[in-house]
Design a protein around this nucleic acid. Structure first.
Lengths: 232, 232
DNA sequence: CTATGTGAAGAACTTCACAGCT
DNA sequence: AGCTGTGAAGTTCTTCACATAG
């Protein structure tokens, strides 16, 4: 059982750019399972058990993990604390990321109050909005600030790397440009459109309704494959 | 230019089960663009223009659409109102879907107040929670009801086909079982775990933090491909 | 001459089978 | 004896090139 050898000592030759996006997506699921069972005090997990919990086939579990190293012990499985630590390292969530949130509407307020971001390594440090009747209002411990102070705030806090956009579609590109111009490295947008973002900024979009549309498609076409996965 | 012939008259032979999941995901993006420009009064759009707006390559735009019929006019492009109608038909959002929401926490409240679901064809008809201090409270025009009345409500309203789960991870499977047992056809869960759902129920999961973890991965591995897409 | 629709080629991802460790 | 790690096979998805239609 690896004798607690640091698994990172044996690192893979495959360059990260060869790793499928879908692998990264699945890594987040493995992490979720591993954190849960680590909390329960389970010391060991096999790819078959990970497969049961995630519904991802066990060949694929092993292949995904093997892109990043040899974290398992043949004949035994994976040591839970090691796997947890390595997955967090791979995903870059061993240390906390600081973010700003733009948009203090219903969704923005929900995101601030949502515990999950913080628990999983992301901290909202400030909230901005353009609407005069939102600026100055309180959400939890935050006071909503004017979007015109956003630039200044980001420049003064260069450890903020991610911007979260929760404004209406019509304003999203404007906010994105502002974030990009001020050296934000990653953008998560909840607006239902594709933003134009330069290649050196990591960009993800999370349109909540899309999931429902996809469910609707499969409800409408019951003969379509049952085994699809709807995932981010 | 098709002389307004109903494009559905010429329908494709390819069975729905051969259509990639990623195609369905992209259809939602085309619909978004087409609705926007239809609102602007534009009558025609080419696959090249759709490609610009969505960043999806134009070969793929055409291939995706061609799975479902010949909606375009060679030498011209796609007629916007026709494409809009056909995309809605394909996705099954020509008529509104009724849903129930379980979980009246921050996320649940945000989802109720979020206009997007309704605008895009989904209606939340009732909200349930298990916590005594939430039951009876008002969210918009809704009164939060006890989760013990959920069963009764779904049975009495068989036109409700989709259940949205916005409860903590620990309770999500219980709620899912309840929905499944009462004949719900589709489930969208925001809980950060994989639920066990029978194959005849359409199941999608939307863990908001996953997007941030993926952004974190690509921030941590700047050499990873720049052209990845983070969607749904 | 323009832009769609599509078979065929190519690329990417998943599954398999089994070698390799413990 | 058991479970991981991985090259190779198999499958699915995307890109291409061009025939087709207006």
């Amino acid at each position: 059982m690896a004798k607690n050898v640091d698994a990172t000592a044996r690192i893979k030759k495959i360059a990260p750019h060869q790793i499928p996006y879908s692998t990264i997506l699945r890594l987040t699921q493995y992490l979720r399972v591993v954190e849960k069972i680590d909390e329960l005090g389970v010391r060991n997990i096999s790819s078959a058990e990970l497969s049961e919990e995630t519904l991802i086939n066990s060949f694929l579990v092993r292949k995904d993990l093997s892109y990043f190293g040899e974290f398992g012990v043949r004949g035994v499985g994976y040591e839970v604390p090691i796997l947890r630590r390595e997955l967090k390292k791979i995903l870059g969530v061993s240390t906390r990321h600081k973010t700003v949130l733009v948009g203090a509407g219903n969704l923005g307020r929900a995101l601030v109050q949502y515990q999950g971001f913080y628990e999983r390594g992301f901290e909202i440090t400030a909230i901005f909005d353009s609407s005069p009747d939102k600026i100055g209002t309180k959400i939890q411990e935050f006071t909503v600030e004017s979007v015109f102070t956003l630039e200044d705030y980001i420049v003064k806090n260069p450890d903020i790397t991610i911007g979260i956009i929760a404004v209406p579609a019509a304003n999203a590109q404007f906010i994105a440009n502002l974030l990009v111009a001020n050296n934000i490295k990653g953008i998560l947008s909840f607006a239902p459109l594709t933003l134009q973002i330069p290649d050196d900024v990591v960009y993800a979009t999370a349109d909540l309704t899309t999931h429902l549309e996809i469910i609707s498609y499969y409800l409408t076409h019951p003969d379509a494959r049952k085994t699809f996965e709807v995932r981010i």
